[in-house]
Structure formats: structure tokens, C-alpha cells
């Protein structure tokens, strides 16, 4: 891998954030609005809850929101970095350069890691001051939780890129709609047992469901559920590998069918 190439992918997006106030703003805006919205909901729920439930509400609702935002931001940063080159009709210049696909993949992963953590730290600090959220109450669970969220965000991101390469910019809506579709099955704000039986079965195959269930086990029962972490990790390894294979397959298909030019001419 050529490090200069990876740096070029990163730098292109850092320039963009510096140049586009909207892009910089969006790193913080959505998470902040959601934090206020769910904060008010949590305050109301605290008012009508029994004392034993009251003390766990901030961790289960606001904590879940903070981690969901990390997943969403990582997926969004990766997908938007690619779409930005589609929108600016720059894709042919990129693919006609000596940049290797694996360098593009590495660049997008590093970029989403950087933007994801900037947003995560910001929201974490805000949640601490507004709602006294202490995420370190999750203890060692934080590590597998965060790593798994990152991998699922990347997996979803590369699947969306694959579809964009295959079907053109008209499927860009997937960048926003796919994570939203995954959210109800992820049981972010409620236990998975709330879902109808059929959806519970479907939710089993969503790594984020295991992670948020595991998070609630730590907060509500003080128990580190290894089973959930193992399932989430196994699913993520499979999904991430499949997503990368899918991305490369779509790239190869695009070269065979001449679809790359559609990314600038549609």
C-alpha cells in the first residue's frame, strides 16, 4: 500500500470539511439535536418512573444514543466521502489515477474513524455536562462495543458504495435509509424482547442488536454478557468480509459493464 495515496484520500476530505461549513457543521449538528430530543424524553421518563428505573435511564437511553451516533457517523463519513466524488464528477479522475482500490478502502476507513471519533468525543462531553452520562460505567465492555460498532458501520458503508457503483448515483438514498432501516432491529433504545417474534429472529442477525442488548445487561444487571459480544463479533467479521468482497465485485462488474462512466455522466 502506498501511504501517500491513502493520505490523498484523507486530505481530500479534510480540505472539504475546511471548505464546507455544512460538512463541518453536520459532524456535530445531528448528534446535538438528537441529544437534546432524547434528553427531554429521558427527563420526562425519569419523572414518571420508579426510583430504581430512574437511575438507569440516562445510561440506557442517552448512552445508547451516543453509541448509535458513533455507528451512524462512521457509516456516513465513509459513504459521503465516496458520494462527494460522485457529485463533483471526479470519479473518473480518481479511478484513472494510480490509486489502488485497497488504498481507497484504507483511506475511507481511516477517514471514517477520524470523523466518527471527533463526533463521538463531542457528543460524549456534551452528554456528560448535560445529563451526567458516565460511559466508563460500562467498564471493559466499551472496547468490544466500540470496535464492533465501527466494523458494522464500515460493512454497511461498503455495501452502499457497492450499490452506488452498480446502480449509479440514483441509489444514494441508501446512504441515509439503510442505517435507519437497521435501527429498529438494533433495539437501540428498548430491549429486543419488545419486538414481535418474527422481528426478534431477524434482529438476531444484526450485530448492533447484540451490542445494545449487551450494553443494557451491563447497565441494568451489572453483567458482561459474553454471548452477545461473541455473536456480534462473528456476525461483524462475516459482514465486513462480505461487504469488502461485494465492493470489489461491484468494482470489477463496473469495469466490465462500463458503469464507472455513469458515475460522472448520469
Amino acid at each position: 500500500m502506498n501511504r501517500q495515496h491513502i493520505w490523498a484520500v484523507l486530505l481530500r476530505n479534510l480540505y472539504l470539511v475546511r471548505r464546507s461549513q455544512y460538512r463541518a457543521f453536520s459532524l456535530f449538528y445531528w448528534a446535538t439535536v438528537e441529544l437534546f430530543l432524547w434528553g427531554f424524553v429521558t427527563l420526562w421518563l425519569q419523572d414518571i418512573s420508579t426510583p430504581d428505573v430512574k437511575i438507569t435511564l440516562v445510561a440506557t437511553v442517552i448512552g445508547a444514543l451516543v453509541f448509535w451516533d458513533l455507528f451512524f457517523r462512521v457509516q456516513q463519513s465513509l459513504t459521503l466521502a465516496f458520494l462527494e466524488d460522485v457529485w463533483s464528477r471526479n470519479m473518473l479522475n480518481v479511478f484513472a489515477s494510480p490509486l489502488r482500490p485497497r488504498e481507497l478502502v484504507a483511506g475511507y476507513i481511516l477517514l471514517s474513524l477520524l470523523f466518527g471519533f471527533i463526533s463521538f468525543v463531542f457528543v460524549l462531553v456534551l452528554a456528560f455536562f448535560l445529563y451526567a452520562l458516565h460511559i466508563w460505567s460500562l467498564g471493559y465492555y466499551i472496547l468490544p462495543f466500540v470496535v464492533n460498532l465501527l466494523f458494522f458501520g464500515w460493512a454497511l458503508g461498503f455495501v452502499i458504495l457497492g450499490f452506488t457503483i452498480r446502480y449509479g448515483p440514483s441509489v444514494e438514498i441508501l446512504a441515509w435509509s439503510l442505517p435507519v432501516l437497521v435501527q429498529p432491529l438494533s433495539a437501540v433504545f428498548y430491549p429486543v424482547s419488545i419486538l414481535p417474534p418474527l422481528l426478534q429472529k431477524a434482529a438476531f442477525f444484526i450485530p448492533t442488536m447484540h451490542l445494545f442488548e449487551g450494553m443494557r445487561a451491563v447497565v441494568l444487571e451489572g453483567r458482561f454478557d459474553v454471548g452477545h459480544v461473541v455473536w456480534a463479533s462473528l456476525l461483524n467479521v462475516a459482514y465486513f468480509a462480505l461487504a469488502i468482497v461485494f465492493f470489489y465485485w461491484m468494482l470489477s462488474l463496473a469495469r466490465r459493464r462500463g458503469l464507472l462512466s455513469r458515475l460522472v455522466m448520469d
Partner: peptide
């Protein structure tokens, strides 16, 4: 038809 990023 292959433009460079307009916002850079």
C-alpha cells in the same frame, strides 16, 4: 466531462 472537485 471529468471535472475536479468543485468545492476544493
Amino acid at each position: 466531462y471529468a471535472a475536479l472537485p468543485y468545492n476544493l
